[in-house]
């Protein structure tokens, strides 16, 4: 462990997080199973469920930086800022994706089984959330796009990074942090592809906006998706810089 970056130390940091802050790693899977068990048989919108629980893990990671006593403890753990950031990213992405997929399978199977028991129906488990074609959000709405699980993860990762940015970047300004966070959530939810579709269809209904017909209807969500994927590593880099410059 002589170099400035060591995967062994990243492993030690992950182990530290899993043992010292074990509650979210037990609580989040349990709550996700319950949520998926309820949502899947009813074909309900599961996005908020994933966003919400996806934030808990990174929210806990850098929360101590807001307090000078615990920040001293975190910042002086013998590991580089890059290793600390990497451990958090792995827990927020790889670990969270595994937790979500696993809990979706368990929750959906259990939920559908219970649903069939109660209603006496013979409904099949709806796997569309994790299938390539994706699921219809608010299925009754004919203009809704199909949302794939990766779309949800992409937004979750962006939200995770934004909450980290707020936690590391601002000092003792809780109201500003809360306001910033809520604003960001609203903007991001509004910026999702299905909202674009809705707005797009609404605009094109009006004949005075014929110019818009020249744009390929599918191009806007694609661009949003690409930008969404590009934003994630950029935000990681910004958060790393903020962590490197973090002082008490």
């Amino acid at each position: 462990m002589n170099s400035s970056f060591s995967f062994q130390r990243v492993g030690l940091l992950i182990k530290r997080n899993l043992i010292e802050d074990y509650i979210p790693f037990i609580g989040v899977p349990v709550l996700l199973i319950i949520g998926f068990a309820w949502a899947t048989p009813l074909n309900a919108d599961i996005r908020l469920l994933v966003y919400m629980f996806g934030l808990i893990i990174p929210l806990r990671q850098f929360a101590p930086l807001n307090n000078s006593i615990s920040a001293t403890h975190i910042l002086l753990i013998p590991s580089s800022n890059a290793e600390k950031m990497m451990a958090t990213i792995l827990l927020g992405t790889v670990c969270f994706v595994c937790i979500t997929l696993l809990t979706f399978v368990i929750g959906s199977l259990a939920g559908t089984y219970i649903f069939n028991l109660i209603t006496g129906k013979d409904t099949l488990v709806n796997w569309s959330f994790i299938s390539n074609q994706g699921m219809l959000i608010n299925g009754y709405n004919p203009i809704s796009p199909r949302i794939n699980i990766w779309d949800i993860f992409r937004i979750t990762f962006i939200l995770q990074n934004l909450i980290m940015l707020v936690q590391i970047g601002l000092k003792d300004k809780k109201l500003i942090k809360l306001f910033g966070f809520l604003t960001t959530i609203i903007i991001l939810i509004l910026a999702q592809p299905n909202v674009y579709y809705t707005l797009f269809n609404y605009i094109t209904k009006d004949s005075s906006h014929n110019w818009i017909d020249s744009i390929n209807k599918t191009s806007i969500p694609t661009v949003v998706t690409i930008i969404g994927y590009l934003i994630i590593p950029i935000l990681w880099r910004i958060n790393y810089s903020l962590l490197s410059n973090k002082q008490l």
Binding site: S4, R9, I19, P64, T72, H73, I77, P78, N81
Partner: peptide, 26 residues
């Protein structure tokens, strides 16, 4: 720079101690 090569050779005991929810062994 807070390099690990430096941090592993420093132990800082602050005046106020952080809340640690672990046993001594852990």
């Amino acid at each position: 720079k807070r390099k690990p090569e430096m941090l592993r050779e420093i132990f800082f005991l602050p005046e106020e101690l952080p809340q640690i929810l672990l046993s001594i062994e852990k």
